[in-house]
């Protein structure tokens, strides 16, 4: 009876898992076929064009796009976590004039879609002579309202103020208290935010397509889009590029999934 109940529970989960994994299977299968083979529709079996497709994407500068994406996403994640944590710490621990207004302002700015501010941001970057560099892609994460909000929520529930008081009484400076006491206590939130920002930056298309016009500066989403001509798309090469592009996300999520789930649950439920 218990086994039957378990089966009833497991079978739907298996079905859902298979449905979720099928697109990944097709992406990997696409990477092994030529475009015309893909059009024939036989994606269940792997083909023999993997090497050719990988050659195409490497010749198209994919390794450079990969590196560009990797380092901009990594620095974006670190920058966002660090600045968001500092801002959240200040908003949670300090009592100062305008704190409420500032909190509400940050919260309100989350409601504005990024696309609206894109033109203004691009003009700003142009005036700073930063167009066709990766700095605009990184800098934008330095002022993440979501990051501040997320860590503030976590800090409110995970950081006892008494601990901060004790550290101060023991003579710890503010920055040291922040780094040595507060940061370790919010590790799951830091890990989660880093992963989210990495993912968003990795997949970002709109911002790079606006501020980058030199192909050697392209990130992966822009690079994948260029695997086409006026009248055709190279779906095999695109499949190979997508399969490789997904790898870092899978690795990072596998490593940090414990923190990710913990961080999301804490940020979402408590508060």
């Amino acid at each position: 009876m218990i086994k039957l109940k378990k089966l009833l529970f497991i079978i739907p989960l298996l079905v859902i898992s298979v449905i979720s994994l099928i697109p990944f299977y097709f992406i990997i299968s696409m990477a092994t076929h030529s475009t015309s083979e893909i059009y024939q529709g036989n994606l269940l079996m792997f083909g023999g064009k993997l090497v050719e497709n990988i050659q195409t994407i490497i010749e198209g500068g994919f390794l450079r796009y990969y590196w560009n994406s990797f380092y901009t996403a990594s620095i974006s994640g670190i920058l966002c976590v660090f600045i968001s944590a500092m801002a959240a710490y200040a908003l949670t621990i300090y009592r100062f004039k305008g704190r409420e207004f500032l909190s509400n302002f940050i919260l309100a700015s989350m409601m504005i879609p990024g696309q609206i501010s894109l033109i203004g941001y691009t003009i700003e970057m142009k005036n700073l002579n930063l167009i066709n560099t990766h700095i605009p892609l990184i800098l934008v994460w330095g002022a993440s309202a979501y990051g501040v909000f997320f860590i503030t929520q976590y800090l409110k529930n995970s950081l006892p103020k008494e601990l901060i008081e004790s550290a101060r009484i023991d003579g710890s400076g503010e920055f040291r208290t922040f780094i040595s006491i507060a940061m370790p206590m919010i590790r799951p939130a830091i890990g989660t935010l880093f992963m989210l920002v990495f993912l968003w930056s990795w997949n970002n298309f709109l911002m790079p397509s606006t501020v980058l016009t030199q192909s050697n500066k392209f990130t992966i989403p822009l690079g994948i889009q260029t695997l086409a001509t006026a009248y055709t798309q190279d779906w095999g090469a695109r499949g190979a590029a997508l399969a490789i592009a997904v790898l870092p996300i899978l690795i990072i999520f596998s490593i940090g999934s414990k923190y990710f789930i913990k961080g999301l649950a804490a940020g979402a439920v408590k508060g």
Partner: peptide, 18 residues
């Protein structure tokens, strides 16, 4: 991508980029 032509030129004109 050829489908992006209009948007790319409009953005460059609006932002003053090259």
């Amino acid at each position: 991508a050829n489908g992006d032509t209009l948007q790319k030129y409009q953005t460059a004109l609006a932002t003053g980029t090259e």
